[in-house]
Amino acid sequence: MDARYQRRKFVNGLSTTLSGIAVAIGVAGLVWILGTLFIKGLPAMNWAFFTESTPAPGSEGGGMANAIVGSLLIVGLTTVVSTPIGILAGIYLAEFGDRSKVASVTRFVTDIMLSAPSIVIGLFVYALFVTTTKHFSGWTGSVALSLIAVPVVVRTTENMLKLVPGSLREAAFALGMPRWRVSLDVCLRAVQGGVITGILLAVARIAGETAPLLFTALNNQFFTWNMNEPMANLPVTIFNFAMSPYENWQSLAWGASALIAILVLLLNVLARVVFQSRSKS
């Protein structure tokens, strides 16, 4: 008996130690990467970084203003487009999903798309929109990013709606509400925190995506508000600059990377806060 207890105790201790080591590895990796990112990136973030456009190699000054604005526009358009599409499709899957063939196929296809290589999406949008309109543009970049974001929003919305307790739904029906009211005013409202979290996570995911933008939005050395033209964006600019041999470009690239990481962190924190507050009800 005692030997058996010793063995169990040993296994338990071992597993605790190993899990501690796992955490140590995870945290070490995190500190390493983020440390590198912030040590190299934060010094680059001065006032010029946010207000001036990308400089030529070796030129003095310059910043990432065109890329920052471009990314905000592209990601903004993506969010505006993919949120309603994703939520409404997710509602359909949750509400009518068990009875509909379309729903189960959509769900499966959405799951496959969640793992799609982002470059394939970019190439598809290139073939469909860029070659036909005969120019690169910011909005085709948004289309590509939407194709990545929509599956995320659809699945999170559906998963969240499925978590609504049946009793809540039934109570609403018992009050004589029509189905669409139950779905939107009761169920969706009940999980709005989770749905918003899903949207924020989708945005965080696409914020750092490079491959879909390579052949859609291309990139732009200069500043533009025009989404019908090649548009500067943070990920592709980072890609070009970080590998270059020019010091001013490299430091800007690290600054931009740190900026993306900070923004994504803020979005994640925001998602948590929203989820907590909304789900307290």
Partner: peptide, 29 residues
């Protein structure tokens, strides 16, 4: 957004070129 973009596009002279990395630093300058 799109119509604003199209309107804005009509005015400035914006040219796009793409290709070799060999001369890229020179072209940027």
């Amino acid at each position: 957004l799109m119509s604003a973009g199209l309107v804005a596009g009509a005015n400035a002279a914006q040219l796009t070129g793409a290709g070799a990395t060999f001369p890229a630093p020179m072209y940027a300058k």
